[in-house]
Amino acid sequence: MRAFIFPGQGSQAVGMGRALADASAAAREVFQEVDDALGQHLFRLMTEGPESDLTLTENAQPAIMANAIATLRVLEKEGGIRLADKADFVAGHSLGEYTALCAAEALDLSTTARLLKLRGQAMQAAVPVGQGAMAALLGADRAKAQALCDAAAEGDVLTVANDNDPGQVVISGAKAAVDRAASLAKEHGIKRAVLLPVSAPFHCPLMQPAAEAMEKALAEAPLRAPLVPVYANVTAAPVADPAEIKRVLVEQVIGTVRWRESIAAMFEAGVTSFVELGGKVVGPMVKRTAPDAEPVSVVTMDDIEALAKTL
């Protein structure tokens, strides 16, 4: 069995998508449709920068999605591949869950771009800059991370945001609490804590205003049943019902991204092949979670051509 998986924020880089667009009309069509949907020159920003603008959450989220969907469309159109024929499940890390839904045709591309633009804006606006923070805990499992959060919170918001793999967990919350957690990490048997260069504390209760904004937007969004089930971040279980998908997307804004559990559950269900499209981030996490799985990351035209021969 096979799953197509999609990266989250942090996988953006100036120059992304340029080689694909140069090589394939299918990719150019994706980037143009996203530009048209957003009314901005996002593709120019992706290819030329500046990096500071591309890194802004409201730009990074639709950009990462567009790059991944362009990769998929090239694979489909030039490789003669249909996702529904080659994938049993799809999943995406945080914003990548929207990419997965677009890939599985539950959301159309323009709607996905607009939802991610709004999601980025709403997440940024939810907490004033400087009041929230996130830190990656290296050499920590979820239990150690939770114990650290309990010890460092002192009445402030501090939660597990991303359970990425057996050795990496991300925490999120009030800046003072995250700073306390970083200083206490070694006492809790955690190798080290690395503050992340993010502009807001994602996937924690401080994001409640953003969750409310997404609930309103998703209520009005046309969303169909996906071609294949999507493993949801907040449940680490497959979902296919449109109403349930909308519910878990709202919950995801403040909830933990249970990526390690999602990969483990897919592997337990019989998935051995994991294809990451548009990045080289979540594939390595797969290998650390399920050592017997076979992840491949597909970014370049050469990657696409090599994958098409094996599917």
Rank of each mutant, 00 (worst) to 15 (best):
I5A: 01
Q9H: 08
Q9P: 06
S11A: 14
G15V: 13
L20Y: 03
S24N: 06
A27V: 09
A27F: 01
R28A: 14
D36T: 15
Q40E: 15
L42W: 12
L42V: 13
R44Q: 13
R44G: 13
L45I: 15
L45A: 10
L45N: 05
M46F: 10
M46N: 03
G49D: 02
T55F: 03
L56G: 04
L56D: 03
N59D: 02
N59S: 07
A63G: 01
M65F: 14
M65N: 03
A66H: 07
A68N: 02
A68V: 12
T71Y: 08
E76L: 06
K77R: 15
G79I: 04
R82P: 11
L83N: 09
D85Y: 09
K86I: 12
A87N: 01
D88K: 04
S94Y: 03
L101M: 13
C102I: 14
E105A: 15
E105H: 15
D108K: 04
D108S: 13
T111Y: 01
L115V: 09
L116C: 11
Q121Y: 09
Q121D: 11
Q124V: 00
A126L: 07
A126F: 06
V127H: 04
V127I: 13
V129Q: 07
Q131R: 15
A133S: 10
M134H: 06
A135S: 10
A136D: 11
A143E: 12
K144L: 13
A147F: 04
D150F: 10
A151F: 07
A153N: 04
E154V: 12
D156M: 11
V157P: 03
V160Y: 05
N164C: 03
N164I: 03
D165Q: 02
Q168T: 07
V169T: 07
V169Q: 09
V170F: 11
V170A: 00
S172H: 02
G173D: 00
D179K: 04
R180E: 01
A185D: 05
E187V: 13
K191L: 09
A193Y: 07
L196G: 02
P197K: 02
A200M: 01
P201H: 01
F202H: 04
P205G: 06
P205Q: 04
M207H: 05
Q208K: 15
Q208E: 15
M214E: 10
E220R: 13
E220L: 14
P222H: 02
L223S: 09
P229I: 10
V230F: 15
N233W: 04
T235G: 05
P238M: 01
D241E: 14
A243S: 10
A243N: 14
I245R: 00
E251V: 10
E251A: 14
I254W: 08
A265S: 12
M266K: 03
F267P: 04
A269Q: 02
G270R: 11
T272W: 11
T272Y: 12
F274C: 00
F274W: 08
G278L: 06
K280H: 11
V281L: 11
G283M: 01
G283W: 02
P284Q: 06
M285N: 05
T289P: 09
V298L: 10
T300C: 10
T300I: 13
E305W: 14
A308R: 14
K309Q: 15
T310L: 12
L311P: 10
